[in-house]
Design a protein around this nucleic acid. Structure first.
Lengths: 225, 225
DNA sequence: TAGATTGTTAATCGATTAACAATC
DNA sequence: TAGATTGTTAATCGATTAACAATC
């Protein structure tokens, strides 16, 4: 147990750094300082260096970081250096958006199979996949070996789907259903809740309307258009 | 400035509490203790009480919280007590999933207009709306008066869309595009990044594979299926 | 009244920020 | 060498947890 636990916020930022680096790489930039990363990512230079320090030393004092070098390192850390197959459960609206999502490829994320329980949908094409019977998920994943799963089904079905995913060998679940999932301790769950996000914004937007000392700033912003 | 700033995590949890309360209400439950909230939400009883304490006193010692009463209070806090119109920009896959999203109604969130810049799409139906020209966004929102906007366009167009939303009077933006948006200080932005979520899971899933002291737990979990 | 549960205060924990010696 | 920028340590900040007096 010599390893210090890496904070979750650090991992989240790692994905942001990677995006900035990929953009920089595309633009032909060879080297980036933590200062420049701050400008492009909005995350402080100190935070950036601190985050990287959990994993090793990647920069040269006086110079900065090699863009291609750091890309490779972060990809390795996040295991995005080789293709990650993903099981998608739910061939509805959200599932549809996900199979068509163009940003996956650049990160070697690939939806390798889609499942649903609706016999009308099973067998139909979905993106470049065929919708499979959720009952066959364990069998199918025996071949694929995916560790990641996405739940894009209605809330009332989400827990059962989670159980099936875990049984099929998945240990990381991205959950779009508005429910708290109960999973064994070795399974990691992350929830995406659009309503929650909008609720937080809704609070702030209302605050803004009321809050006295914001008025000055709002004026500035209005005239700044 | 007598108000203590409410932590963002508290606001995020408020939306979770609300969901649990709505479920409880549906089940005909009249009263809930912080203990019971812990069981249903996975958030500690102490955290729940602390979170509420930022906004006032809502419970009865020895009894707990009135379910309908607390629903109303949290809805008021998050401004979900009256309909919140939302502008959606981007009539692609993600936009399509959003206009069809069934969970909005229960929280009085309503997508009031959809915009795109693709002249092939403009004028076509989209859910029960008609896709409008992004160039007309300010004009359209003069009638609607939405403060919330959703960006569901490719990364390269996101910043321009953000500018237009702000110009149209939006002060809260939910951004699905993988870019950091630059906005005036009175505008609140929240980012939804599927790739980021999957990257964090990918890291943990790989950890699990390597990590020595996890083995015991994995065995347990395997046999627990 | 006795038992239960709240709201709040103080203690703990963890993450962010700032500063600086080491180094290219 | 001098200037720039790293990696890391210590200080600060903020959020979570635990405990308990107040109260139904």
């Amino acid at each position: 147990m010599t390893e210090t636990r890496v904070p979750i916020p650090t991992l989240e930022r790692l994905a942001i750094y990677l995006r900035v680096l990929l953009d920089a790489h595309e633009a032909g930039i060879q080297t980036l300082s933590s200062q420049e990363m701050e400008q492009h990512s909005g995350i402080s230079a100190a935070q950036f260096r601190k985050d990287l320090s959990y994993f090793g030393e990647f920069g040269k004092p006086g110079v900065g970081y090699s863009v291609p070098g750091l890309i490779q390192c972060i990809e390795q850390i996040l295991r995005l250096d080789e293709e990650q197959p993903i099981l998608l459960v739910g061939a509805g609206n959200i599932g549809s958006a996900l199979v068509g999502y163009p940003n996956f490829r650049a990160h070697r994320l690939r939806i390798a199979a889609v499942f649903d329980n609706n016999f009308v949908k099973i067998g139909r094409p979905f993106g470049d996949l065929i919708i499979e019977d959720i009952a066959r998920i364990k069998e199918v994943n025996a071949k694929i070996g995916a560790r990641l799963g996405i739940i894009a089904v209605p809330a009332h079905a989400a827990q059962e789907v989670a159980n099936l995913l875990v049984e099929a060998g998945v240990t990381g679940i991205l959950n779009f259903a508005p429910t708290i999932l109960r999973t064994p301790p070795h399974v990691h769950v992350r929830n995406v809740s659009i309503v929650q996000e909008l609720a937080v914004l809704s609070y702030h937007v209302a605050e803004e309307t009321v809050c006295e000392d914001c008025r000055g700033r709002r004026q500035v912003a209005r005239s700044a258009k």
